[in-house]
Design a binder for these strands. Structure first.
Lengths: 133, 133
DNA sequence: ACTGACGTTTACGTTAACGTAAACTTGGAA
DNA sequence: TTCCAAGTTTACGTTAACGTAAACGTCAGT
């Protein structure tokens, strides 16, 4: 038997509320099995949740996250399906690449700025030291 | 004389509405000069707007974007100010680094998946070719 | 003088992403 | 059996980030 999770298991692990997880289900991002009324999450469900949350951290809306994540569950039976899938993967990949560029320049800007600050700091400290003599 | 921009100049360039730009001003992200009632944006204002929009693309709220961007306009007169600034820069830098990790794994996942899809595709195509004989 | 095109303020409306509360069920510990 | 913690549905509330509309000012072109 594969391990399963309750909704509060996942809520605790990912630091969100059960409400949030149910909301993702309402939006079609998750589709856990049921045991009676209770939701039962498999390892695959858990992975999907992790993907959703990562998507959110990267600035995607739930709808955008869904579009991407659903590609990982797309049918691959026919040649046509696979070709269409590869198209869409390329498209999403380009979006991620754009974000990477944004992120790299943000980080580079900050690093250069911090470096100038450090230089200015040692300079100021040298001045104070000189004035103290 | 330095070049300036009207609100619709910037709106066009960055593909947002004037309303959005005014909203950023309401939220304290921009503070353009005025000529009478009219807002006059300098190159520095334009840069700040670009930073705001990049922040949004990276998943920051306006408040978070503001916190980061304001660091670039922080006073650096005293040693204490510079040290505090460097602290905060480090903190924000760590957040960006987290996003980078997220982004890298998202891209790597997708690349590996796409690769498996391509393999499966050539495999399927080989099967079809064999069946056609 | 008149008319757009562009700007302004004010204020209510909208959408996404949940929060919160109420009322109910249900499986296990005491 | 009773009770409680954890689950469920339903539905209204909230916040951020703007959209949209009204009512008005201003200034270059005819």
């Amino acid at each position: 038997m594969e391990r399963t999770y309750s909704i509060s298991d996942l809520a605790r692990e990912f630091d969100v509320t059960p409400r949030t997880i149910r909301h993702y289900e309402d939006e079609g991002l998750l589709a856990p099995a049921r045991s009676g009324q209770q939701r039962i999450y498999t390892a695959r469900d858990r992975t999907r949740l992790a993907l959703v949350l990562r998507g959110k951290r990267l600035g995607f809306s739930l709808a955008e996250a869904r579009e991407i994540i659903d590609l990982y569950a797309a049918p691959q039976g026919e040649v046509g399906q696979l070709e269409a899938l590869l198209e869409k993967l390329d498209e999403k990949r380009a979006i991620l690449e754009d974000k990477r560029r944004d992120l790299e320049s943000a980080i580079n800007n900050m690093d250069r700025y911090a470096e100038r600050c450090r230089e200015r700091l040692t300079e100021l400290q040298a001045m104070e030291k000189a004035a103290a003599e």
